[in-house]
């Protein structure tokens, strides 16, 4: 009997490693290896077809002195802030609306707001690029009635970043609404009933019950939108109309566009790899901070 269990344990271990092996094997080859290779290439000068020439830390020295690195970081963060903050607020408000117990056609409303989520960033960029055309665009036409504009959406940095952020918002608000809605529905009704008895206003219920209860969800959405936002590529690429350059003055040049520009337009694979390493460190720091804050907050809740 004891022998049988012993064999089964051994088998269980074997099965465990076996079941994990496809993941670790493929992740190692297609996930980790390229990243390790990026570090390697970042010490060379290389135009892809030619030979690799060892340059030591030159690419990194150049990188820290290159204001484009900082401006592309700035653009990325600016687009990220313009998209995530309004989006999460709008999603929370919409979730409160959808959480109304008397609401009819629930599935219909939920499906409709989730609908934009299925479109590709490329299609979104094409449509928004046309609606926000500098001359003859629909949005400038509408703004004209308010006595505003025409806004040079494609020329101006902030205006264009706003449009790019709108693309992200349009696509993701519905998704985050449903995430918040799920969290709202998970809040025990007794909490509100008790508050009701204490005579708390709806507003104070919102801040004292709702927000603390869904805090983990808020952090979940912040983390996912951070990681997605820092890698934004398709929207500015399609919107700027200048390829990898990201606008006439690089006003829409995000980190990922900068990386692609140096790799495929300038054929500087080594420098491009150094940019990737830099971006990697920045994301790692932001992710780490995120992780620390959220784990602390989750602990504080318990």
């Amino acid at each position: 009997m004891s022998k049988a269990i012993h064999i089964s344990r051994k088998e269980e271990s074997r099965a465990g490693y076996l079941f994990l092996s496809p993941f670790f094997l493929l992740f190692g080859i297609f996930g980790l290896l390229p990243i390790i290779f990026t570090f390697y290439v970042s010490f060379f000068k290389w135009d892809l077809l030619g030979t690799q020439e060892w340059v030591g830390l030159d690419n990194y020295i150049e990188l820290v002195a290159d204001e484009r690195f900082y401006s592309s970081l700035g653009n990325t963060i600016s687009i990220f802030l313009l998209s995530s903050a309004p989006q999460l607020v709008a999603a929370l408000l919409l979730a409160l609306v959808l959480n109304n117990k008397k609401l009819r056609f629930r599935t219909f409303w939920r499906s409709v707001i989730l609908f934009p989520f299925i479109t590709s960033t490329v299609a979104v960029a094409v449509v928004f690029g046309a609606m926000f055309a500098d001359n003859g665009g629909m949005v400038n036409w509408a703004l004209g009635f308010l006595g505003v504009g025409p806004v040079p959406w494609h020329a101006d940095g902030l205006a264009g970043q706003f449009v790019i952020a709108m693309m992200v918002n349009w696509r993701w608000t519905g998704y985050n609404t449903l995430i918040f809605l799920a969290a709202l529905q998970a809040i025990p009704a007794e909490l509100y009933e008790a508050a009701e008895v204490d005579g708390a206003t709806k507003l104070s219920q919102f801040f004292n019950i709702t927000i603390p209860q869904i805090r983990p969800t808020i952090f979940f959405t912040v983390v996912t939108s951070t990681i997605g936002g820092l890698q934004i590529f398709a929207e500015p690429y399609m919107f700027s109309g200048t390829g990898y350059a990201g606008g006439s003055d690089g006003q829409f040049r995000t980190m990922t566009l900068f990386l692609f520009d140096q790799a495929f337009a300038q054929l500087r694979l080594g420098y491009s790899s150094a940019i990737a390493v830099g971006l990697f460190l920045i994301i790692a720091i932001i992710a780490g901070v995120n992780f620390l804050i959220s784990s602390k907050l989750v602990k504080a809740d318990k």
Binding site: G31, P34, I35, F37, I227, Q231, F233, L279, F291
Partner: peptide
């Protein structure tokens, strides 16, 4: 936490 997109060129 590793953004795999960064390894796109290698």
């Amino acid at each position: 936490m590793i953004p795999l997109q960064l390894g796109i060129i290698p």
